[in-house]
Nucleic acid binder design. Structure first.
Length: 462
DNA sequence: ATGTTC
């Protein structure tokens, strides 16, 4: 397979039929296709060869090379007799984004912004290996967090019951089982609750601006002109631990059964097998940790700003879930891809039945992010959209080619709480694709529509 | 993404 074997068959859709007759579809504008590396397409093709795949295997507009499945990859398998792959979910299980609104005007916090960022930073432990500093989180029972997710936290006073309608899956995946987790996995969870992490994780303070569709924005509770917070983090060490352990076990089990071995990142188990079910329980527990983590960062922010916030929505973008389409039970692996159920979808909470679920697409810390809604046309992507802008430079390339001066220019006027410019230069806006080009790829073909744009005014990075 | 080399 060569990159040019992918042909544009419809506007912004490039297709390829694999030798096994599994269709691979990548959603890209011609410009994004031009810049795409062939290795990502090869990874989609490798995934198409797994048993029980329900086509098409999909690449999103923010696709880039990952480990096993590319970031921006969607892989659906038969939910009864298919397979599950730890690597196709990824290391940071239930990495996701949450948007919270406030009634605060920019003018009211403008002068205090540096102090405010410092205050939040001190309670959310940014950085690799960050351990819990948010004192209230230390008294929580980790087993309950892993098995009961956000509903448990709400019973402990972190948020209110209404929040549950504003979190995908109500903030808990019921199959979460802490008893299958290794001692190491539980230990890392216990030490890292309510921490931000590193890499592309962040807390941003933004202004909600640009009126695309006032009525739908109102229906979603979006306050134009007001200050909001965007939280991007996941399951931290426990997700990493679970993925590493089960990828290894899946690989060994395949070898023992003399099954053809894909790359390690695509090692899999049958969903029905004890190992497949065990991984799902472990993945669900790590997911519950991640939902809880974002809930706790929310209350930590509320305490720093001294007022309550309003949760708009919380979306995972690294997760595998059982979903039914046309009466067919599927397991949809989304790795760097966001679920986007449109208006009328039966799985939505009542308050989002008429609008569809809000979809949060972070762009870059210098340029901005989008709130979107999906349309029924998303059926062809198993109701999935991109999860961000997507990298255009690897971390290594970014560190080599972007200067401090260029970075500071892009971040002009945006307050930062960071561990030094050189430590976050691989997260510079220039390291990412143009978020407008990426977002427009699905908008232009009627799969999504824009509701609001978020302009960053402050950022916390680990 | 990640106690960034079990």
């Amino acid at each position: 397979m060569k990159k040019n074997d992918f042909k544009m068959t419809e506007q912004n859709i490039y297709s390829y039929m694999s030798p096994d007759n599994i269709k691979v579809e990548v959603f890209l504008s011609p410009l994004l296709f031009e810049y795409l590396e062939e290795s990502s397409l090869k990874q989609l093709l490798d995934a198409s060869e797994l048993p029980g795949v329900i086509p098409p295997v999909i690449g999103m507009p923010d696709i880039h090379e990952g480990f096993g499945l590319p970031i921006g990859g969607v892989l659906a398998t038969d939910g009864n007799d298919g397979i599950i792959s730890a690597g196709a979910v990824g290391m940071d299980i239930n990495c996701g984004v949450r948007l919270i609104n406030t009634d605060i005007d920019y003018g009211d916090i403008k002068d205090e912004l540096p102090k405010l960022l410092e205050k939040i930073t001190s309670s959310v432990s940014p950085g690799v290996g960050g351990k819990t500093k948010y004192l209230k989180a230390k008294s929580l029972d980790i087993q309950n967090v892993l098995e009961q997710g956000v509903p448990y936290l709400i019973r402990q006073g972190f948020g209110n019951m209404e929040d549950l309608d504003h979190i995908e899956d109500g903030g808990v995946i019921s199959e979460g089982d802490s008893s299958v987790l290794s001692h190491e996995a539980v230990k890392r969870a216990k030490e890292q609750l309510a921490t931000l992490g590193s890499g592309n994780h962040f807390i941003e303070i933004c202004l909600l601006e640009t009126d695309f569709n006032q009525k739908e924005a109102n229906d979603l509770g979006i306050n134009y002109g007001k200050v909001c917070f965007l939280i991007h983090t996941g399951s931290r060490g426990i997700g990493h631990q679970v993925c590493t352990e089960y990828m290894d076990r899946m690989k060994k089990a395949l070898k023992k059964d003399r099954q053809p071995l894909p790359t390690k990142g695509l090692a899999y188990a049958e969903i029905k097998s004890p190992l497949g079910r065990e991984y799902f329980s472990a993945m669900a527990a790590a997911s519950n940790f991640a939902f809880a983590n974002r809930q706790l960062l929310t209350t930590a922010i509320e305490e720093a700003i001294g007022c309550k916030t309003n949760l708009i929505y919380d979306v995972p973008h690294n997760i595998a879930k059982f979903e039914t389409i046309d009466n067919q039970k599927l397991l949809v692996h989304r790795k760097g891809a966001t679920r986007a159920f449109p208006a009328g979808h039966s799985a939505l909470a009542k308050k989002f039945k008429n609008t569809g679920q809000p979809v949060i697409i972070p762009g870059t810390m210098g340029t901005g992010s989008y709130i979107m809604l999906g349309t029924e046309n998303l059926r062809r992507t198993f109701y999935s959209v991109n999860h961000g802008a997507g990298r255009q430079l690897s971390r290594k390339q970014a560190k080599k080619s972007i200067t401090k001066k260029q970075f500071k220019q892009m971040m002009n006027g945006i307050e930062m709480s960071i561990p030094g410019v050189k430590n976050v230069i691989d997260e510079a806006p220039q390291a990412y694709k143009d978020v407008d080009e990426v977002v427009n790829t699905l908008c232009d073909i009627g799969l999504t529509k824009k509701i609001a744009r978020l302009r960053p005014i402050g950022v916390i990075k680990g």
